[in-house]
Design a protein around this nucleic acid. Structure first.
Lengths: 229, 229
DNA sequence: GTCAAAATTGACCGATCGTTCTATTTTTGC
DNA sequence: GCAAAAATAGAACGATCGGTCAATTTTGAC
């Protein structure tokens, strides 16, 4: 018997979309039921509590992120190529948003727009509970993946040996965050280009040395202090 | 007669603090009244609608931001010193959060923690209305101020003449955003240091040329393409 | 101290919140 | 096609939501 599992998925998908608009905490069982043509109790019967639904939504978001961002990166050769692919996929996720990856519903996709994890980071950074814990874990794992990709760049000899990979991850996600604000809130169509420019700069600092300190006399290759990134 | 004006301020301050925890949209008149030892109707009498209260809260946040970030920067000499001061003040705002600047209530200050505008950017990026419009305007003005500070750096001869000042602002705010997530959500005490390191890198790119393109043979000062930042 | 104006209260509105319970319908294994 | 199981519906719960209104208390200028 599996009809129930199917509707459960539909509920989670609908809740994820709604969460992108009003926030996960403000997804309402009644409104969700109305949108999905279900009775409120029929919907609720699939979860033991609203919190359980929220956790399911987060799980779905993580799955989509893996599908749309992590997997494409893993398909690229280790080192700089994978690092670049990771950023491209991340940027795509940030600007387009994460559809469910099975039969694109473009309209719904555009409507969702933007990275749900950024919203969740803000929504739960002061709200203790299981949902917050899950959000924290997802973001820790994401940073770890980014820094891991940078580490592979070092291992492959593409990046500097003394690269601070966590600093790279820090700046990497920062570019994505600004990009989202620039694109979605400020409505600047150049957000993607700005992000790519910033990433190119980050990439350059990963690759070479002696790029950090300002040089008053650029042609003279005198003693240069090694920067931390 | 002015007693009413005073309570109004108290209400707005309380609402701002509450907004930092649960989001501006979830600030509830009842809960706010309880916390301030007021009746719900007595509280509500000071505003024509909840939206008016929200706008007042946003206004208060903008005032605090000006007091804590903009003003210190304007007190520094134009150019690189002001640019540096701006970042320091911004970072302080991001990590400590914005108190009201009159008699520090440290407890309340720590409780608030973090930049309310980041939360608002997420909360309203998909929620049309006057509040969203006000949030957008505040963030546009903020970016404009940052890029203006960078422009002064160019004018003063501290920064490159061909500097893309909007790109600088883009990356500037990105550092702050990641810093907040790293500090508040992930609980990493090194977030501030990471942000400072990232800023030092950005600053270096503002100051000098020829830093963008990777060089396979660093010692050879061959033909170098000028990067956009 | 008086008295009008301002500030605040408390009761109440319909709507909706998450949740529970008991039917009723639909699906599925046989 | 039948019975058991699963899925859905409907009504109702107390609580709270934003908002209104008449009544009351507090305030401030004279």
């Amino acid at each position: 018997m599996r009809k129930g599992q199917n509707t459960r998925r539909e509920i989670v998908k609908g809740a994820l979309e709604m969460a992108g608009q009003v926030g996960l905490e403000n997804v309402t069982l009644g409104a969700l039921a109305t949108e999905l043509d279900l009775s409120k109790s029929g919907l609720f019967a699939h979860f033991e509590s609203k919190e359980a639904l929220q956790l399911a939504v987060l799980e779905e978001a993580v799955e989509r992120f893996k599908l749309r961002v992590i997997r494409p990166a893993l398909g690229a050769p280790r080192g700089e190529p994978r690092f670049n692919t990771l950023f491209d996929a991340f940027l795509e996720w940030m600007t387009v948003g994460g559809g469910d990856g099975r039969g694109f519903d473009d309209a719904a996709e555009r409507r969702m727009g933007g990275c749900i994890f950024m919203a969740l980071s803000q929504e739960y950074d002061d709200r203790p509970g299981k949902v917050r814990d899950a959000v924290v874990q997802s973001q820790r794992e994401w940073r770890s993946f980014v820094s891991g990709a940078a580490r592979l760049g070092v291992d492959e000899g593409h990046f500097r040996a003394d690269l601070d990979i966590e600093q790279v991850a820090f700046e990497f996600v920062g570019i994505g965050m600004t990009c989202q604000q620039t694109n979605k809130l400020l409505g600047d169509p150049n957000a993607g280009q700005r992000a790519r420019t910033a990433f190119r700069s980050l990439l350059a600092r990963c690759r070479v040395r002696r790029e950090m300190q300002p040089r008053r006399a650029p042609r003279v290759a005198g003693t240069l202090v090694r920067g931390s990134l």
